[in-house]
Design a protein around this nucleic acid. Structure first.
Lengths: 194, 194
DNA sequence: GACAAAGTAAACAGATCGGTTTACATTTTT
DNA sequence: AAAAATGTAAACCGATCTGTTTACTTTGTC
């Protein structure tokens, strides 16, 4: 039909190619340390094309954070089985998944947290993308804790969120080697709300 | 006696002036975003002096992280009363302190965590400074949990550490407004180890 | 085959990066 | 007073930064 359809037929539109390449590089090297030249060379596209789809590097970063959220969302869909499994098991599955997720030697921290570290107080659109991401993370937990204890769903969700964020931050330092079983810790917490 | 003594008499040696200025700017703007020109202008010193005390920007960053640790250490000394207070109270005091600490509108996350986000896999000396800082944080907790439950001191310390790191990471997003009482959550955790 | 869209490659812009060097002023020690 | 150390101010270096522009090539559509 049109050229975009052909590009999709080849697997990727230019725009998603740019976003996915930038996503990988931002994870590896951070945001400031990753120049647009590096992104453009790694994606095999010209600088003009990059600036056609994204007017500034900041816009690209926001798009990458949205992509990060979307890809994490679809990953979550494979971790959570909403119908045929108790909410407790789904929550613990999240923690088990996080353990392998954070334990990857290539893991350099949550991209949204890192973006906050680099742009907090400097770029409002990026800040918003990060808070949106974290808000969604909490909502996923709330959807599950709602099935466990409707009266204290938010409270439990938030406590579990603290655990997950703590795991993520510590993984950077301990190289994903947790001296305590975090899934068990989450289970203990959940069971006090049943 | 010598010039350093005079400088100390005036309050600051050049070296500490540089480190403290860089410390403030790194907290505000991040590491990559803070150029040496900005540090040197803000400190009111020449670039040559800066490069006399620190051969590279990376060396300065390592020094700043060491300063961060030292200043946090002396702050901890004011929070913890090791002799005349039960370890449980000291631990809870740490959580209360962290709440106000992280709730500051100027708080941009733990400097060591942010440094990891920017330099993980890129600068070995900086990585080491960050892990040293976190290791010390855990040791402080271990010293207190030891008094509560010697058999499971490390386990409890690590769990409390997860809570603290989680609080810190979330503070960036929620602006330090915790929907649950984290000190109470820590207390519940501790009391299961008494 | 003409035409428009979308692409590449590369020069260019001005600013800033980390870092060096030169020239000069101010101290401090002898 | 002479000498040495320590500092500032600023030019300078090559590289890199985000972003623009020019010229040319490919591609798909009518």
């Amino acid at each position: 039909m049109d050229s975009e359809a052909d590009a999709n037929k080849a697997g990727l539109s230019k725009q998603t190619l740019i976003v996915e390449t930038a996503f990988r590089l931002f994870k590896q090297n951070g945001f400031y340390a990753t120049g647009v030249d590096m992104i453009m060379q790694e994606a095999g596209i010209s600088k003009r094309t990059l600036y056609k789809y994204f007017r500034t590097k900041g816009e690209l970063i926001v798009a990458v954070l949205a992509y990060y959220r979307a890809s994490y969302q679809s990953h979550m869909a494979t971790v959570i089985d909403p119908n045929n499994r108790p909410a407790r098991d789904n929550l613990l599955a999240i923690f088990d998944d996080a353990k392998t997720w954070f334990g990857d030697a290539q893991f350099h921290g949550c991209l949204a947290v890192n973006a906050m570290g680099e742009f907090s107080g400097k770029d409002h659109a990026i800040e918003d993308a990060c808070t949106d991401f974290k808000r969604w993370e909490i909502e996923v937990l709330q959807g599950l804790t709602q099935q466990i204890n409707p009266n204290k769903a938010d409270e439990l969700a938030y406590k579990l969120f603290v655990l997950l964020e703590g795991m993520s931050a510590i993984a950077l330092v301990t190289k994903g080697d947790y001296p305590v079983d975090m899934t068990a810790m989450a289970a203990e917490l959940i069971d006090r709300y049943c």
